[in-house]
């Protein structure tokens, strides 16, 4: 069983939750890897607070579980029917006992309620001055991230600096979604007509997975996201690359043909691309080449998947609002070459 773990698996589960590991392995799941979307792997102050609270409640639950189920098992064995035993004494109740088992759970609940209230108020504070502001806009079925102070707009992959408080402002462009990256903390619904907030401080460099948690239509399952928590210099470097204008295309190259195709097939009607177009229906593609995934975090960002995606989006992602533009193979190759250039 031990060969299942490498250090990353071990690391994947927080210190006070190590007891879970054998359970996970016993359940046959532990060999699956480091659980990048686990809620038991807090990577921010918010997630940490929730994790501590959950651990508390969990142990109370275990205590009650053992008590009740143990008692039940004991009763089943001890009081099973025996031939010739006398009819049991008809007891109708016991006032003292009733009071006792009303008070006992009530008392336990006080021990749960107090830290709960404390955590509620601690995790729903106003954002401190100097926090990094990020606007998260949910779309069917992808995520848009805007950094208003930095002038950066990107999609699906959220870059955050470790150790700095982040204030997320969540809005929706269509239906209700829910922003959930378990490593960062609890989910928060993204509701049209409202702006919800999440304030948290990522505490270690890591790549976290997440996805939409509120059913939002056909491709709800395909509305995934990634959070890259980076050290401050790496984050600044990323910001610098994103702030730069669109990459230029060499004259006469395949990429230049792709650029024309991008205009010809109406891609500019939905996507922002450098200074060429400013449409905001689909993701900003100015730096598409710098992203790891495409199509709402669904596929790796490589030529093969990009080709399949553009050739027929609704076939790759059910219900996709991006239509099949029936791009012929030649133009498709040019388009891919162009998009791959846009780093």
């Amino acid at each position: 069983m031990t060969e299942c773990w490498d250090s990353s698996t071990f690391d994947a589960v927080s210190r006070d939750r190590r007891w879970l590991l054998p359970l996970l392995c016993a359940a046959g799941a532990a060999c699956g890897g480091p659980f990048p979307q686990s809620s038991l792997r807090p990577r921010s102050d918010f997630a940490g607070a929730i994790d501590r609270l959950f651990t508390d409640i969990f142990w109370w639950a275990v205590l009650v579980f053992i008590l009740v189920e143990g008692l039940l098992l004991f009763i089943i064995v001890r009081y099973r029917y025996r031939e010739g035993a006398p009819t049991p004494k008809p007891t109708h109740g016991h006032t003292l006992l009733e009071i006792a088992w009303t008070l006992a759970p009530a008392l336990i609940l006080v021990f749960i309620a107090v830290p709960t209230m404390r955590t509620i108020f601690a995790t729903q504070t106003d954002s401190p001055a100097g926090a990094l502001r990020v606007e998260v806009v949910a779309h069917q079925w992808w995520w848009e991230y805007r950094y208003p102070e930095l002038g950066v707009v990107t999609a699906n992959e959220l870059h955050l600096p470790a150790g700095r408080t982040v204030a997320l402002a969540l809005t929706s462009a269509d239906v209700i979604h829910s922003f959930w990256a378990p490593g960062l903390g609890g989910k928060r619904d993204v509701i049209p007509g409202r702006t919800n907030r999440l304030v948290l401080r990522p505490d270690s460099v890591d790549t976290l997975l997440g996805q939409c948690a509120e059913f939002c239509g056909a491709s709800h399952a395909n509305m995934r996201l990634r959070v890259m928590v980076e050290a401050e210099p790496a984050f600044q470097a990323w910001v610098g690359r994103q702030q730069a204008g669109a990459a230029s295309v060499a004259k006469g190259s395949l990429a230049e043909q792709g650029q024309q195709a991008f205009r010809r097939y109406g891609c500019v009607g939905c996507h922002t691309m450098g200074t060429m177009s400013t449409a905001i229906i689909g993701p900003n593609l100015t730096h598409l080449g710098s992203r790891m995934t495409i199509a709402g975090g669904l596929f790796p960002n490589d030529s093969v998947h990009l080709t399949r995606w553009i050739a027929d989006p609704p076939a790759e992602k059910p219900g996709s609002i991006m239509p099949n533009m029936h791009v012929p193979a030649g133009d498709l190759a040019a388009l891919i070459a162009y998009l791959r250039t846009m780093r």
């Binding site: 609270l53 749960i112 709960t116 955590t119 509620i120 995790t123 959930w180 609890g186 948690a213 059913f215």
Partner: peptide, 12 residues
């Protein structure tokens, strides 16, 4: 019943 904990559990 504990809202912060529920934020990790609801809709999962």
């Amino acid at each position: 019943a504990s809202p912060p904990a529920d934020l990790q559990q609801t809709d999962t």
